[in-house]
Design a binder for these strands. Sequence first.
DNA 1: ATTAGCACTCACTCCGGGCGAGTGCTAACA
DNA 2: TGTTAGCACTCGCCCGGAGTGAGTGCTAAT
Lengths: 348, 348
Amino acid sequence: MAMDERKFRILQAIIDDYILTAVPVGSRTISKKYGMSLSSATIRNEMSDLEELGYLDQPHVSAGRVPSAKAYRLYVDQLLQGGRISQDDEQQVRAHFAGRTRQMEDVIDHAAQVLSSLTKYTAVVLPPTGTQPKIRNIQLVSVADNAALVVIVTDAGVVRDSVIRVSEELDSDALYSISRSLTAELTGCSLTEAVERIPQMMQRMSEQAQLIEGVGAVMHEHGEDIRPHVAIGGTANMLSYPEYSDMEKARSFLSLMETRDRLADIISQSGEMSFTVRIGPETGVPEMEDCSIVTMTYTAGNGQQGTIGVIGPTRMQYSRVLAAVNMIGRQLTQLLSDAPGEDIPRLE
Amino acid sequence: MAMDERKFRILQAIIDDYILTAVPVGSRTISKKYGMSLSSATIRNEMSDLEELGYLDQPHVSAGRVPSAKAYRLYVDQLLQGGRISQDDEQQVRAHFAGRTRQMEDVIDHAAQVLSSLTKYTAVVLPPTGTQPKIRNIQLVSVADNAALVVIVTDAGVVRDSVIRVSEELDSDALYSISRSLTAELTGCSLTEAVERIPQMMQRMSEQAQLIEGVGAVMHEHGEDIRPHVAIGGTANMLSYPEYSDMEKARSFLSLMETRDRLADIISQSGEMSFTVRIGPETGVPEMEDCSIVTMTYTAGNGQQGTIGVIGPTRMQYSRVLAAVNMIGRQLTQLLSDAPGEDIPRLE
DNA sequence: ATTAGCACTCACTCCGGGCGAGTGCTAACA
DNA sequence: TGTTAGCACTCGCCCGGAGTGAGTGCTAAT
């Protein structure tokens, strides 16, 4: 027994109905609501077959059927293939993003907000990261008598800056000249390469050894601890769905959303493809057994890649979510491309 | 009929019990569990009086009594007066914060996390803000051929920096000399004062007019839009409490936690006093009718003030929360004081 | 002033019956 | 051979009533 055209249409109808109502759907519903000229009995037979094929589950013997993860998989594959992704609210959203120079962090936060309010699910946005950024410029700025600010500019924007102590009282000219040597020496290096070079440099410019060591420490710290800011929107949305009427589930979901590190891992595991849909168990996260995650990567001007994602119940409205994710993703790529001229958002 | 010693002790017992169990407490419970040598009947009479005085509410006629906001107020006033604030886990927490130079943002996030896990409620931390920070140094750093990064250092640390376009191709030496003039001119000004001076400066140094205008724009933007990063921890905790078994309530609470701007407003409304406890309606927030908020201000080295707060149900464990807030608050103040020498966290 | 006793209230739980949506199977039909 | 009507059966869910127990208020005795 194989999957024929009719079975497929019935399956589709079941999924549609279940997505809408979150209630196990019965044969009569399909036969009546979804204009097939088939009696409920026939549908029943087909449903029985579909269950055998693994596309449907039955919560208990006298209940309707519920689509399985396998069914959703088929469903979204169809969606993705067909490319039926509309792009309605595009205009409004574009307006939201237009104007003002923004910090990367703001862009990210905003994207998460828009995406969640568009889909009514939970949205997660990771900032662009990627190949080790290359150093472009190093500046020491005097902050106080014995403290200086280290600003490291890379091709990804400004890497976080830090204050270090300077032993002697160097005036700003002195700092500037040191900045120039450092820049000359390290331009084009990645942070880790730069850290490796620090010892030699300390020897060569021994009178500034302490200062240079400080700079090295800053680089080291930022080279490792790239704990990017993760933007989340609409966690509260999930509570509106019946699948989270169980408090315990809701709690564990929310806890997961709070541990940003783990969340970032989960979201960023979205393969090489630009579009990824992970359904239920495919997420690989026990707490998300009945969630699906739709992710897409976007690209900033410097080639770095970020990820946006939507998390919802497995019965999410895939076509709408796919459309929204696709739109926001493209929008971000465009916004962050070097081209536009007036704004250069930077990496936080 | 007035509040006498015995009534007060009974009220205290009722509050203690209710805080523990979240269940309306009856006269028998008090008479038995709380070693008063009084019969339940006597307690009943007293409870009736306390209800008349407005300290107790009765959900329905045959249920026990529940403390009113007025009762909690009395309770915490007593707590605050007595100064009975223990400081047990102080050591562990101090260890958490020790070591490593940190960004202000990290410190804030971390404080929220610790505070929420310590109290099992929701914690909110606002970064220090305060009197307009004074400019200490302005640096233009070359980022690309026709773009420069403006870094404005104030006594509050680094104000967010932005990239601006520079029309001509200025090399880094040229940028440095402009930086020096700008610094000389504007040191000691607040951001808004500096913005006012921009027009004159544009006239005076007309060949760099566009550049200076750009710098002015950056200042203006950051002078206004001080949307500080708000750190939140433990929102999921709230779902463990029976008062939030109602999904609708939980949802509205979480939504509130998501609108950081509003949340920041609410938290920062904590009067002049260093310690504030707002109970139920006192919060002034409809969504928080049965929440209480405990806040405390802390002070950074430069005199700027930040706020930390804990949000929980009105029946929160005030003494523990007060202790925790107090401890973390003092800890932050100490950590952020200029004194310690090795770390200077900075304003994000 | 305190307490024992008593009648009364009322939320909560448990339980059995009825309901209805849904299934699987069988037999009839095109 | 595929489709359909009919039927018996299952089982979750809702509803109403009885029972329970915690709690109160009042009264009378100590």
